[in-house]
Amino acid sequence: MRAAILCGGRGTRLREVSETLPKPMVRIGDKPVIWHIMKIYASHGIKDFVLLLGYKGDIIRDYFLGYYAKQVPVTVDLSSSGSERLTFHGNQTEDWRVTLVDTGDAAMTGARVRRARDFLGDDTFCLTYGDGVGDVNITSLVDFHRDHGRTATLTGVYPPGRFGDLAVSEGAVQSFNEKPQVSGGHINGGFFVMNANFIDDYLDDREDLVLEVDPMKRLTEKQDLMMFPHNGFWQPMDTPREHKLLNDLWASGRAPWKTW
């Protein structure tokens, strides 16, 4: 199974922390937040990733192209040429497969997923945002999705009330209200699971297609979207305060999302 990660946003509320990095590359401890997200999935056996790049995507691309060289000792032989110039000392640090897809600098979330269609295959896939971590049980999430047989599943969480509010009946999402003024129930925490037909049936290539607006509302109208309830830890990294919170948790050695 593949996991697609949305990595194209500008992270305007986080500019106090970094104006030069795309949000997925902002660090928690000594690793970018996207590494933490990938470790969560990998701890559940999902190690095939498709990164949907946009704003400053070259920084993410360069990070993974040079990932191995930055993790182990390396000898550079300047007297030779070709493949023998570099000698790596040590074992592979992560057994991941990472596909880097440029989905456009200004594309919205729905368009990004649609533009990666050729790399997501014809099987069920996971999808999440490149700026949020949690101790979500991915294995149980995928099992839940396969059992209910609908096209899509999102993970419902209970954090701050500035995100999308969900009305749910018997597990099915009845309405999807993105960014309401007041929220008292579950909200959209990402960590989606989608059947492959979701891309063909609910998405198109419009630059301004927002995943959380028309596609989600159409899914709810067709009773084709289910919610996996997660009552544990979940935290986005949208603001400097949230960045500090996550770094403090990591530094304490008690980061709840560290499931590996």
Rank of each mutant, 00 (worst) to 15 (best):
R15H: 13
V17S: 12
V17C: 12
E19R: 15
E19K: 14
L21N: 02
P22H: 05
M25Q: 05
I28Q: 09
I28R: 12
I28A: 13
G29M: 10
G29C: 08
K31Y: 04
K31D: 15
P32W: 02
V33S: 11
V33C: 07
I34W: 06
W35Y: 13
H36K: 15
I37Y: 14
I37S: 10
I37L: 15
I37P: 15
I37M: 08
I37T: 11
M38N: 02
Y41W: 09
Y41F: 15
A42I: 15
A42E: 13
S43I: 15
S43P: 08
G45C: 07
K47F: 12
K47M: 05
D48A: 07
F49G: 05
F49V: 03
V50R: 07
L51R: 11
L51I: 15
L51V: 13
L51Q: 01
G54P: 05
K56V: 01
K56D: 01
D58P: 03
I59R: 01
D62E: 06
D62S: 07
Y63P: 14
Y63S: 08
Y63H: 10
F64M: 10
G66W: 02
Y67I: 11
K70Q: 12
K70T: 14
K70E: 11
Q71T: 09
V74A: 12
V76Q: 00
D77H: 01
D77W: 01
D77E: 10
D77V: 00
L78G: 03
S80G: 02
S80Q: 10
E84Y: 06
R85L: 01
L86Y: 08
L86E: 01
L86H: 06
T87W: 00
T87P: 03
F88L: 15
G90R: 03
N91T: 01
E94Y: 00
D95P: 14
